[in-house]
């Protein structure tokens, strides 16, 4: 066990614990806050595993934008902020399926990799320069397609949320 292992495991356990908080808490706002903690843990693991640029993008986009967006949605749908028993359906099928999938994945990955070691000596950090070179030399086409996807999602979100209003004004008018 090297220092990298210990740090990755510590951040990973933080992410896992906060993730359990997301799916089990009975207060809906706390689920959003636990999601922020969980993604901070994932970003920590990415930082330890030499994905420096990705880690900060995760903090910016997930903790900064997506969690805030989810909290906005809970406020807009007037979700109960006090503890509520109405948030879950029966848990047993979910526990069985999720633990089956998780254990299956863990068994496959353990069988494939075992306790092998990967040397980090000479591994360049995945900072902005390295990521820019990788994206704009090898993955230019996916990058451009993604900009189209973002545009389509933006237009789609606007279309979905305004169509109802047009119908209402049509009905009332």
């Amino acid at each position: 066990m090297s220092l990298t292992d210990v740090l990755a495991a510590a951040f990973g356990l933080l992410a896992l614990g906060a993730g359990i908080g997301v799916v089990t808490t009975r207060r809906i706002v706390r689920a959003g806050l636990w999601l922020a903690v969980s993604f901070a843990g994932i970003a920590g693991v990415a930082l330890v595993l030499t994905a420096e640029f990705l880690a900060w993008v995760l903090v910016l986009v997930y903790v900064g934008a997506i969690v805030v967006l989810l909290l906005f949605a809970t406020m807009l749908t007037r979700a109960p902020t006090e503890a509520s028993d109405e948030l879950d359906r029966r848990q047993l099928p979910g526990i069985l399926i999720a633990s089956g999938v998780g254990l299956g994945l863990a068994a496959v990955l353990t069988g494939a990799f075992g306790w092998t070691r990967v040397s980090l000596v000479g591994r360049e950090n995945g900072d902005a320069a390295a990521m820019g070179e990788a994206i704009f030399s090898e993955w230019v086409l996916p990058f451009e397609v993604l900009s189209l996807l973002l545009l389509a999602a933006l237009v789609g979100a606007i279309a979905v949320s305004t169509r109802d209003r047009a119908q209402q004004s049509g009905n009332s008018g």
């Binding site: 993730g19 799916v23 994932i42």
Partner: peptide, 8 residues
């Protein structure tokens, strides 16, 4: 583990 928790 994260995938399983999310699936649950």
């Amino acid at each position: 583990g994260l995938f399983a928790i999310g699936l649950f």
